[in-house]
Amino acid sequence: MNAFRLAGDMTHLLSVVVLLLKIHTIKSCAGISLKTQELYALVFAARYLDLFIHFISLYNTVMKLVFLASSFSIVWYMKRHKIVRRTYDKDHDTFRHHFLVLPCLVLALLINEKFTFREVMWAFSIYLEAVAILPQLVLLQRTRNIDNLTGQYVFFLGAYRVLYILNWIYRYFTEPHFVHWISWMAGIVQTLLYADFFYYYIMSWKNNVKLELPA
C-alpha cells in the first residue's frame, strides 16, 4: 500500500469520524443529507458482498466493517434517534435520490469488468458512489450557511477521492498492467462534483470567514 492510498483511506475515515462526532456529541444532523447517507449505505452494502468469503488482509476487512457499520448507524440515527431526527432538514433535503440508483444499475449491467453478480454489484457501487454526494451538495446550496463540522465532513469526503486519484496515478506508473477504467472515470466525475465546494471552502478558510455557498 502506497502513501496516497493510506492517506485516502484515513481521510475517508476522518470524514466519518467528523460526522459521527457531530451526531453523537452535538446530537444534531443539521445540514446533513439523509438521502446521501442512504446512498452511501447502499454503496458499501453492494461493494462489500465478499466481506466474509474473500479475505485480503486484516486491514481491508476492518475498514470494510467500519464503513458498513458507520454508514448504517448514521442512517439509523438520522431516522430513528428522537433528538437527532428533530434536527434533520427534511424541507430542504428533497433531491430525488432514487432516480440515481436505476441509471447506475443499468450502467453496471452494461459496463463491468466481468458479467457476474458480484462484479456487477461492484461496478454499481462505483457508479453510485460517484453521484451519491449530489443530494448533500444540493442541500448545502439551498441552506447556504454551513457549520464547521458539516463543512469539514464534506471537505474530507472530497479530499479522500482526490487522494485516491493520486494513488491510481502512482500505481499506473509503478505497477505493470494496472488499468481500472471504471474506477478512474467514476472517480474523476466524483471529484469534479466537489470542485465548486472546494473553491468556496478554501476561500472561506483563507479569508477566515464562515463558509457560505452561493444560491
Rank of each mutant, 00 (worst) to 15 (best):
Y199R: 11
K79A: 04
D50E: 15
P176I: 09
R47V: 08
R142Q: 12
I182L: 10
I53M: 09
W184D: 06
F72K: 01
V154P: 05
L109R: 04
V179Y: 12
F124R: 03
L134P: 00
I32K: 02
Y59Q: 15
I74N: 00
V189Y: 02
A123E: 03
G31W: 05
R96A: 13
L107H: 01
M121E: 06
I202R: 09
T94C: 02
L68S: 05
Q141S: 11
H92P: 01
T143Q: 13
A215F: 10
K90L: 08
F72P: 04
F72E: 02
T191Q: 08
A123F: 03
R5T: 13
L105T: 03
C29D: 05
T150I: 04
V66N: 04
L100R: 01
V16F: 07
I133D: 01
L157K: 09
V43L: 08
R80V: 10
S183W: 11
T116Q: 12
L140N: 06
Q37M: 14
L192Q: 03
E175T: 15
G31I: 06
S183C: 11
T11S: 14
L109D: 01
L65F: 14
H12K: 08
F198H: 07
R5K: 14
Y194A: 03
L20R: 02
R171E: 11
Y194Q: 06
N112F: 10
L20Y: 07
F156W: 13
I182C: 00
N208R: 15
K22R: 12
A41L: 14
M78P: 01
A132G: 06
K206T: 10
I74C: 06
T116N: 12
N145D: 12
H98Y: 14
I53P: 01
A123R: 00
K82E: 14
C104W: 02
K35P: 05
F44K: 03
L39F: 04
L13S: 10
N60T: 13
R118T: 14
K79E: 09
T174E: 04
Y172Q: 10
S204N: 06
H54I: 07
Y170C: 05
V209I: 13
R161A: 04
A215G: 08
S183L: 13
F117Y: 15
I146F: 02
W76R: 10
M63Y: 14
L211Y: 00
L166H: 04
L192V: 13
F156R: 03
T87Q: 06
L192Y: 10
I146A: 02
W122V: 07
K79D: 03
A195Q: 07
L65Y: 09
N167T: 04
F72W: 15
T61H: 08
S33Y: 03
L213T: 09
F124N: 03
L65D: 08
K79G: 03
A186I: 08
T143Y: 00
Q152I: 07
